[in-house]
Design a protein around this nucleic acid. Structure first.
Lengths: 142, 142
DNA sequence: AATATTAGTTGACAAAGTCAACCAAATTAT
DNA sequence: ATAATTTGGTTGACTTTGTCAACTAATATT
């Protein structure tokens, strides 16, 4: 692959996901949740039960910030905290039914944003994007 | 495609790009530029010459915020403003050599972040991701 | 020529995120 | 066992990021 072409692919890819971020930010703005909040809900959903520290580790988020977001989530009844049997300092977090509903709503909205973005791209651009992902995969020997 | 599988793909995809956003945010944090700033540089790079209004239109960014960022860019000599011949209210923006250098640096750093993320994914996950993009493309009749 | 629109700047503010100090529980060293 | 250190989490004070409305100057509309 020529360097020139490679640079072009990087730009295509960067362009794609920065646009995606823009769209995502916008749709989250219309929702009542920030990107950080959406990511936190995702972590809790995926793990079923985890501690605040786990989230800090996975998302590299500030613990003070997280603490406040979790407080808000609890107030909105999106999450439940159960004291850990192993460690009295720790609360185990899980999504409530309301939390799951919010999480699903955010995911569905994301999907729409992705489709909206992809629909603005040409077949050529899409191919370039997929090709670039594959190229990276190849570079990594997978 | 079964609904269950479809939901799973959406989640894979959402997960991928929200993680990407997290990484991107972090690397931008280590740089001296915010995501908004990176996107603005991208626009100016792509268009060669455009007005602040063009950027507002393309990125749906607040004009007050943009105004301040452009002021900062000008102070750092990343951009040049040339009065438009057509409209005396408008300045046409372009990247300086310094601005181009910053833009290239940000792009390169992004690439590293993408590779870092992809390297954590399994072949199966990557296939799912690419498959999902293709599926969306197919749904859109491309 | 009067009126309305548009491009861009600025001030005041709100939201997002960071940092350091702190408390309580757990772990390690002595 | 207990003193010293580390870890999980909360809070207050702060910075950065982003929004909104008011304003000026130039352009477009009637």
């Amino acid at each position: 692959m020529s360097t020139q072409k490679h640079i072009q692919e990087i730009r295509t890819f960067n362009r794609f996901y920065t646009d995606l971020i823009g769209l995502l930010d916008k749709h989250l703005l219309n929702s009542d949740y920030s990107l950080a909040e959406a990511r936190i809900l995702y972590e809790i959903f995926t793990a079923k039960e985890l501690s605040a520290s786990d989230i800090i580790y996975r998302l590299s988020i500030d613990k003070g910030y997280l603490s406040r977001i979790l407080k808000k989530f609890e107030k909105e009844a999106l999450i439940a905290r159960k004291p850990s049997a192993d460690d009295a300092r720790v609360s185990l977090l899980s999504l409530t039914d309301a939390g799951l509903e919010v999480f699903n709503g955010l995911n569905e909205a994301s999907e729409k944003q992705i489709m909206a973005l992809i629909s603005t791209m040409s077949v050529k651009q899409l191919d370039a994007l997929i090709g670039h992902m594959k190229a990276i995969t190849g570079l990594l020997g997978k």
